[in-house]
């Protein structure tokens, strides 16, 4: 892989991050209002403090958060901190810092969403490919109908139905949360099994809902691929059908799917909000929801930046990987 390409692509990655961080900084500041004053005033209206005291506290907190400095100083300090992944303190949970809150929630989201997204991709892609393969069992063609129906149902609807059926009507699985309240988190077998049990319903709803999307896309690509001359020639070469399917069909048809998959992995962090909310799952989505309802700007910044970071990382990864997947794509400048 030429170094020049690598450098260019990594630079592009940092420019995207810088742009996102800058927007992230300036957009909220364009809106009127001061978060510190708003928060203190809302507390004051509950507690009955005097207005004059509030103004002093606003000044004090502004100094504490550095909000009294000129904008460009704030911006410089912000950038300096952001690139160290230091997003400051959470306003709603002061003195908790933003980063530890995110890193505490991240494993839950990655564990649930990345794993179930991967399953959905693998199962959906195989299903779609088999549905388009003439010598595959007819059974797979019948599965496309249900898969299409499932992909049309929003995944949160699916979650609610699943919760109703398997947690309320037949309480096989727990209703919500990432693990039982009674259990102490730790790296031991009972806890891991408990976590898995809690992940089944939300995971299943994500897999079911996303499966149809991948299956339909793959089926379309596979129908095109199976008509290619090289598939006919592979048949004329007397290859085993299994090899033709994997090595000449699926291998080629999967290429456009990979880009879509990388982007979907990148958006996993943000796409999880509703599922996590329904299942009260202790992940990023739940954290973001709480941050928004509490106007916790720094936490919101932190999470949004992490989302941008994950999308940028995923697209960087697929860009660097793609020439290995499709040798026709070269690293040379287009």
């Amino acid at each position: 892989m030429p170094i020049g390409y690598l450098v260019r692509r990594v630079m592009q990655f940092f420019i995207v991050l810088w742009g996102a961080a800058t927007l992230n900084f300036f957009l909220p500041r364009l809106a009127p209002g001061n978060p510190v004053r708003d928060r203190l005033l809302s507390q004051a209206s509950q507690g009955g403090l005097l207005q004059s005291g509030v103004e002093e506290m606003v000044r004090a907190y502004n100094a504490e958060f550095g909000l009294d400095k000129p904008l460009w100083v704030q911006y410089g300090r912000y950038l300096y901190h952001v690139f160290q992944l230091d997003f400051g303190f959470s306003i709603a949970n002061y003195p908790a810092k933003v980063l530890p809150m995110i890193t505490a929630a991240l494993p839950w989201t990655i564990g649930l969403l990345v794993v179930s997204s991967c399953w959905a991709f693998v199962i959906g892609t195989l299903l779609g490919a088999l549905a388009a393969w003439p010598r595959a069992p007819r059974f797979f063609r019948y599965l496309i109908g249900p898969a299409m129906a499932l992909s049309a149902i929003p995944y949160y609807m699916l979650s609610i139905v699943l919760v109703y059926l398997f947690a309320v009507t037949w309480p096989i699985f727990p209703l919500s949360r990432g693990y039982s309240i009674s259990r102490l988190p730790g790296f031991n077998l009972p806890f891991i099994l408990d976590v898995l049990r809690h992940a089944i319903l939300p995971g299943f709803s994500i897999v079911l809902a996303a499966l149809g999307f991948w299956a339909l896309g793959m089926r379309g690509m596979m129908v095109t691929t199976r008509g290619e001359d090289y598939v006919t020639f592979a048949e004329a070469k007397g290859l085993r059908d299994r090899r033709i399917f994997f090595s000449y069909g699926l291998r080629n048809a999967i290429l456009p799917q990979m880009t879509a998959f990388a982007i979907s992995l990148g958006t996993v962090v943000s796409g999880s909000v509703i599922v996590e909310a329904i299942f009260a799952y202790p992940g990023i989505g739940t954290l973001l929801l709480r941050a928004i309802s509490a106007s916790d700007y720094f936490l919101i910044y932190g999470i949004v930046f992490m989302i941008v970071l994950s999308i940028a990382l995923a697209t960087l990864a697929i860009d660097l990987l793609y020439p290995f997947l499709d040798p026709r794509i070269s690293y040379r400048k287009a």
Partner: peptide, 24 residues
């Protein structure tokens, strides 16, 4: 029949330009 293909009867395909898998 699969065994006969290539070993017994082989084909130089029409449109050989696209007869090779581009990613292999």
């Amino acid at each position: 029949m699969r065994q006969v293909r290539l070993a017994g009867v082989a084909m130089v395909a029409q449109g050989a330009m696209n007869s090779l898998n581009p990613v292999k």
